[in-house]
Write a protein that binds this DNA or RNA. Structure first.
Length: 237
DNA sequence: CCAGACGTTGTT
DNA sequence: GTCTGG
DNA sequence: CCAGACGTTGTT
DNA sequence: GTCTGG
């Protein structure tokens, strides 16, 4: 699945340029690199402007709250949406029809191993740089305060050959040519596992476990001898 | 008809 | 065990 | 995803 | 809002 990720670029303007999106200047003012984005956090999404073809880059909360929800309690149970069932699920069907987004990131974490000894891996693009994750978003008005929140969920697929030994799900990573079909038409054919050679995996520290930790040292590769005797899933790396 | 759910993951 | 918060 | 709380009353 | 279950 996808329960934590990173966006470590120095300038959010570079993300706007890469995705050909207009940057919300109010949101951009508070930008900082993130090494441990967790459910419930504010993060960046690229979406089409209302009725148009222009893309915007702005902040939204991770964990989809449907516009009809009485409260935001279910947000944490809607951080991911299975690609296979998007069109059937009541919570996602409407958003699939009209509110797709792309979630910019430069890596995501997956945990593996036995209960109580699970270890995080950081997966990133083999050549480095940005990844485009497929997502859905929605607006929700808090009935108590009248405040409008925008929230999103990340689509998941079965794993590719790299991720399969670690986990049975992974986020839907869009190739550059798949971004527009996803945003404009919700073309579900783009929701497939990333090519087997698209990503590389690094074992990282269990300090990632706590969402309070959010600094560059989280991405430092952890050596085998620091790994506490876990089995070697990645002998060559 | 009204009431109640609407989700994913991991673990057992 | 289960829910909330980060 | 994992970590941490899970409660009320009265007093400051 | 919309669907399923009773």
């Amino acid at each position: 699945m996808c329960g934590r990720f990173t966006l470590t670029v120095a300038r959010i303007e570079a993300v706007a340029e890469a995705f050909d999106a207009a940057l919300d200047p109010a949101d951009a003012a508070g930008y900082r690199p993130r090494y441990n984005v967790a459910p419930g956090d504010q993060h960046w999404i690229v979406r089409l402007a209302a009725g148009g073809r222009a893309r915007t880059l702005g902040l939204a909360g991770w964990g989809l709250v449907n516009h009809w929800a009485p409260d935001a309690a279910r947000a944490f149970q809607q951080i991911n949406a299975r690609a296979e069932t998007l069109a059937q699920r009541r919570a996602y069907r409407e958003a699939l029809k009209s509110r797709r987004c792309v979630v910019p990131t430069d890596g995501f974490y997956e945990w593996y191993g036995p209960p109580g000894a699970r270890r995080p891996m950081w997966l990133r693009a083999r050549a480095g740089g940005l990844l485009a994750l497929a997502g859905l978003y929605e607006h929700w008005t808090n009935p108590k305060t009248g405040e409008v929140r925008t929230t999103f969920t990340i689509v998941t697929t079965p794993p590719n050959a790299l991720v399969a030994p670690i986990h049975d799900r992974m986020p839907a990573v869009l190739a550059e040519a798949e971004i527009e079909p996803w945003l404009a038409k919700g073309d579900r054919r783009v929701l497939h596992a990333a090519p087997d050679d698209a990503l590389v995996a690094t074992r990282v520290s269990r300090r990632v476990n706590s969402a309070r930790n959010d600094d560059p040292s989280l991405l430092e590769p952890e050596r085998e001898e620091d790994a506490g005797g876990q089995q070697r899933l990645f002998g060559g790396s």
